[in-house]
Design a protein around this nucleic acid. Structure first.
Lengths: 156, 156, 156, 156
DNA sequence: TTTT
DNA sequence: TTTT
């Protein structure tokens, strides 16, 4: 609302497989860590320094299921979404914050035959069979997936 | 390094003035909170829900000084940068994390005469006087500022 | 398809009102020019040079109608979309190309009371009345609008 | 100037090698075509349609040389830059327009050993030898390159 | 702590 | 054709 923008674009490698969590109403979310790298030259020492930044990526519903199915640890992926910081309490009662990337769009960048684990069967089969595929039909692994932002209102 | 991308683009309103911190070597950083808003309709209740996301923006050196000078609490601004999560220890010795947006580019979006506080003097004066302005000369408030990413290697 | 990305993000001022075109099947498109500005210092002369870039923005259906209603000549707006180059033939039979920005998301950045022309009536009224607003209900001018990318397959 | 934004982000495959052009003063530009793909389902026929969009990418100076050296036809690359439409006259005296993507940043996405043609020698050698590498030293193919936007004022 |  |  009110003319603001909250947009994140990442290209990185996943640090783990997608961990799914299913809700009672039928919704689901998937989570996985994504690493991006920075490298720069330290001005005083002239040394090349590399550092890794880890992002907590969150995907929902159909998109989560697609990621769980096709995205394997170590794969390269483009992620678009927004930043969301969740507040929680640790066991000492302290307020803690966790910043997450809520993903609205993604594109797999690891070539199909190089992915850590490959789904069996042909992921491209279904599209030609269905005259009017639903919006969340994801028949082709090699496609940009765009999450329908309004498809749910899960409490997170 | 290795073909990754870590990019954030925000349009929001600042929640406070820029707080500066100066280092001994001459470097400086500025920090300010930036609010973005989300609004969606709760599917079950049909209610319109609005929520605010707060981002910790960090700017460095010359860019920090420009923001301190021209950016006032409540102003609208476009921020581009990267996500960086800093680790720190609280007084109980727990590891804590703080996610920041390290700004590399910004554009003021609040019209000049509407800004909360206006700098005295003419911010456009210097450019025409100097035949070869330095890269970090920011003579015009109404310009996109692009931080020279390699200009320092401050320990943050 | 195949893991590509085609993304444009613009903040600029509209050079004209939105021109609508209605199709027989009920679809519509709107077009308007958007100006972005660049300014840099000529290295040899030390002069400050300003240049304007004009973008041909194309919006469709409901989004087009919202833009037509609320976006006036001179307004500032954030536009997100993709680049599309259309081929056409001029009257001498030459192949010509026109590059357009097909808009999928936008956010008005001109404060409500400053817009060139204001719609009469309260644009915020409808949301609270309808328990389950349709996705393309745009009851609030001050909101990011996200076009449903798959809602049509118009031949352009 | 004046708080505008002109940003393009592409991930695509190059359609050709980089064509270089050298200026007398020492500057250079490189040009290459970049393909992005779109695929959607035609609503009436239910058919899967794929279309390719070609972008004219322009890089300058050091960045151009790096692209010429490391980027081969068919490689996947991330390109960031701005849209610029050039006006020219055809031989019939008609005004023609050509839209280009002026690249300010890029990241190679094709794994090193898969690129069409590999540079001989070790592209990582130079950094460790020089204590204070120049900003435009590009010792590592696997890095995001950020063009110094103000390094020249070529007339294009 | 912002804004509409 | 916009804006500052």
């Amino acid at each position: 609302m009110t003319g603001t923008l909250n947009k994140v674009m990442l290209i990185g490698h996943t640090g783990d497989d997608v961990k799914m969590h299913y809700f009672e109403g039928g919704g689901s979310i998937g989570r996985f860590p994504l690493a991006t790298n920075e490298s720069y030259t330290n001005r005083t020492t002239g040394e090349r320094v590399t550092s890794t930044e880890w992002h907590n990526v969150v995907v929902r519903n159909k998109a989560a299921e697609i990621c769980e199915k096709y995205l394997k640890k170590g794969d390269k992926v483009y992620i678009e979404g927004r930043i969301k910081t969740r507040k929680w309490q640790d066991d000492q009662g302290n307020e803690r914050y966790q910043t997450e990337i809520h993903c609205s769009e993604f594109t797999f960048l690891t070539p199909k035959n190089e992915s850590g684990a490959e789904p069996s069967g042909n992921s491209q089969a279904s599209a030609s069979k269905s005259a009017k595929p639903k919006k969340d039909d994801y028949s082709n692994r090699n496609e940009t997936y765009s999450q329908d932002e309004e498809e749910d209102d899960l409490p997170f």
